[in-house]
């Protein structure tokens, strides 16, 4: 109650201030602008120089032929027409799609499920919350190596278990045959990242107004109905955020594949090549900067498409959380 009267007082003062503001508006707003810019500037400088400029530069570069020496040579859309005839690239594109299609929904479902479990009142939930975040904070190189050992086709415990305990003769070649390799990397990716998205979901779940559950309970809703009619719609903005982050991070995947499958030469075979691997190889090994930038544009276009869809969705879904 005290809060309310305080808020009313503040609002009155605000009104008075607005009137004052209107009087000396121009002068004030210039000053306000400068103050605001001073807040933004330190971050914006770094952001502009090392993010915005290279981003714009990559558009230009994608229309050129350049090996880093001399002047770039303008070649129009040649790089792009070359892309679609480049089997290595289309294969990498396909691999990336497959990886994304499997990783995104399973990670989302696992993260949400875990968040719901760990949002309920259970003993030891802080312990479970903490450990489920371990894989995310753990160094990729270290944990990828462990899983690589565990999944090793010849000496790994998983295949030894399959062959010596379950007597399966043709054990999966996790690192060199297409389907098992994809299973392996998707499994690893879910294992590594679900804790991160779990935390985001947890925050979303805790933002759901408890009164909604109470009134749903009064209306006689059971657990499942509460989930579909209260929880899911209420956390829709969170789900959008998670979906966006997941799709984007799946498309830019490379380090996971490199650490799970590549040897000392950092090369991948055609079944495990992804877009960013192609970009990396073309630019930093082949010194074909223009062509690599054209590949980047494809990555960019895919991500942009996804983002636009989501942006549109957020307009319809995202508002409800903000107003209350």
């Amino acid at each position: 109650m005290a809060l309310k009267s305080r808020a009313a007082k503040v609002r009155k003062k605000q009104l008075a201030r607005k009137r004052k503001l209107a009087a000396g508006k121009n002068k004030l707003s210039t000053k306000n602008n400068l103050i605001a810019y001073s807040f933004i500037l330190p971050n914006f400088l770094g952001f502009a120089v090392f993010t915005l400029v290279p981003m714009l530069f990559s558009f230009v570069l994608s229309l050129a032929k350049w090996n880093g020496v001399g002047m770039p040579q303008f070649v129009g859309i040649t790089n792009f027409t070359r892309l679609f005839r480049d089997e290595a690239f289309t294969r990498a594109l396909l691999n990336t799609f497959v990886y994304t299609i499997f990783t995104v929904p399973f990670t989302m479902a696992a993260a949400l499920g875990l968040a719901i479990l760990l949002n309920s009142k259970i003993k030891g939930r802080n312990f479970f919350r903490t450990i489920s975040f371990f894989p995310y904070v753990a160094s990729l190189v270290a944990v990828a190596t462990v899983w690589r050992f565990i999944f090793s086709p010849t000496v790994g415990p998983i295949n030894l278990f399959l062959s010596s305990v379950l007597h399966i003769k043709n054990v999966p070649m996790w690192t060199s045959v297409s389907a098992p390799a994809m299973f392996f990397v998707v499994f690893f990716s879910i294992w590594k990242n679900m804790g991160y998205y779990m935390v985001i979901y947890l925050a979303g779940l805790q933002g759901v107004n408890a009164e909604l559950y109470e009134s749903a309970a009064l209306d006689g809703a059971n657990g499942r109905q509460k989930f579909w009619n209260v929880t899911l719609p209420q956390i829709a903005p969170t789900s959008f955020f998670v979906l966006m982050m997941l799709i984007i991070s799946s498309f830019k995947v490379y380090d996971i594949f490199l650490n799970l499958f590549a040897g000392g030469d950092n090369q991948l075979t055609s079944i495990t090549r992804v877009i960013v691997y192609q970009i990396y190889n073309t630019a930093f090994r082949g010194l074909d900067y223009g062509y690599a930038s054209a590949m980047s544009m494809i990555l960019f276009a895919v991500v942009l498409g996804v983002t636009l869809v989501q942006f549109h969705g957020e307009k319809t879904y995202g508002q409800q959380g903000g107003e209350s």
Binding site: T51, P54, F57, L61, G68, I279, A283, M297, L299
Partner: peptide, 22 residues
């Protein structure tokens, strides 16, 4: 501008960025 660049993966502009840094 900030939001838009969150969506753009660093990997999409790592090449020109490398050239600039060099």
């Amino acid at each position: 501008a900030y939001i838009a660049t969150i969506a753009v993966p660093w990997q999409a502009y790592m090449v020109p960025q490398f050239i600039m840094m060099s």
